[in-house]
């Protein structure tokens, strides 16, 4: 028994030495020396979680990194838990975080002491679109008709979570047009879409990927997209329509624009070489077929930024969110 323990220990020490030696051999570029924790500040099954797991799958399938990538969900307090963990891991190069709009909204709504400045921005992977959906059996064929109806009677808008992106859009819509919308929060985007199919709510602002299958089956109808320009996809999703046929909110006479960040961050205080590794890694991920398929399926806005441009974008967005949240009275 003791002998076995001994040999095992020396084996382990050997392995440790080998791992320690690796960076010395490859002086040029930094590489992770331990498994990388990929923190998802949202629950399993949601949009951010799906994207994180796709990235994990791509990285392991194409062997883009020698060390494994481990996805860890820290959803508590609308993601506050995950962000605080990353904030506390200053200087740790083996941790990355995927973020959604709760990067801006959670600290404002809950008062949890945290901002994106506590992290190192790595890259913006994509922007998620929001589309105004109604049930296909409803009489509203355009956003104008929907808004006109919402001025007559109070309509129910379903969305994910409270004081987050969906509700912000709802409030912005109401402010811009004077429509009467009651916001009903649910736990996840898929649930919201089904509630709309079952006509328990009147409208939703689901992301494309959450509602596309119901659109194709003829249960839901898109009215407008909350982006400055129309969506890119031109191939037919239903028999008659493609993503690019959906008018923008502005075309529909509603000046509301909202896109959700899907970006990757690292803890603060990491070295430039470490940051460069992940920028490069994510660049490779974006070039894979699997990634392109995901982008296409979800009709994502594939804008991607790194470095200073990303920082400038974040600064702008944070200020915009503060304004939006303050106007809506969501600031704690």
């Amino acid at each position: 028994m003791t002998l076995m323990g001994c040999s095992r220990r020396s084996l382990l020490i050997g392995a440790g030495a080998a791992v320690l030696a690796t960076p010395a051999l490859a002086q040029r570029a930094w590489e992770p020396t331990r498994p990388v924790q990929f923190i998802v500040p949202a629950g399993t099954g949601g949009g951010a979680d799906q994207m994180a797991r796709v990235i994990q799958g791509i990285v392991s399938k194409h062997k883009l990194m020698r060390q494994p990538m481990v996805v860890v969900n820290k959803a508590g307090g609308a993601g506050a838990e995950g962000f605080l963990e990353a904030k506390g891991a200053r200087g740790n190069p083996h941790m990355i975080v995927i973020t959604l709009s709760n990067l801006f909204t959670t600290p404002l709504a809950t008062g949890v002491p945290f901002s994106w400045g506590d992290l190192t921005p790595v890259a913006m992977l994509a922007l998620d679109e929001f589309v105004l959906w109604v049930n296909a059996e409803s009489p509203w064929k355009t956003a104008q008709e929907f808004i006109a109806a919402a001025k007559q009677e109070r309509l129910k808008l379903g969305g994910t979570g409270s004081k987050q992106e969906d509700q912000i859009i709802g409030v912005a819509m109401a402010k811009a047009t004077g429509a009467n919308l009651t916001y009903v929060p649910f736990r996840g985007g898929g649930e919201v879409a089904v509630q709309l199919v079952g006509r328990h709510i009147d409208a939703s602002v689901n992301n494309p990927i959450e509602a596309v299958t119901h659109w194709r089956s003829g249960a839901l109808r898109p009215l407008c997209v909350f982006d400055g320009q129309r969506l890119a996809g031109t191939e037919k999703i239903t028999e008659t329509a493609s993503w690019s046929d959906i008018p923008t909110a502005k075309e529909s006479g509603m000046d509301v624009e909202y896109l959700m960040l899907r970006g990757i961050f690292m803890p603060a205080g990491v070295q430039p070489a470490q940051l460069a590794f992940y920028e490069d890694l994510l660049g490779k991920v974006r070039e894979t077929q699997e990634w392109r398929e995901l982008m296409q399926q979800g009709a994502f806005n594939t804008t991607s930024l790194t470095g200073e441009a990303f920082r400038a974008w974040l600064t702008r967005e944070e200020a915009r969110h503060r304004g939006l949240m303050q106007e809506a009275g969501f600031v704690a």
Binding site: G45, R53, A219, Q297
Partner: peptide, 19 residues
């Protein structure tokens, strides 16, 4: 089931009424 759902999407299958 939520996690399985993510898997379906990854394999290029779109869960929902059309499946």
């Amino acid at each position: 089931a939520a996690v399985l759902l993510g898997g379906l999407i990854m394999w290029g299958l779109q869960p929902g009424p059309m499946l």
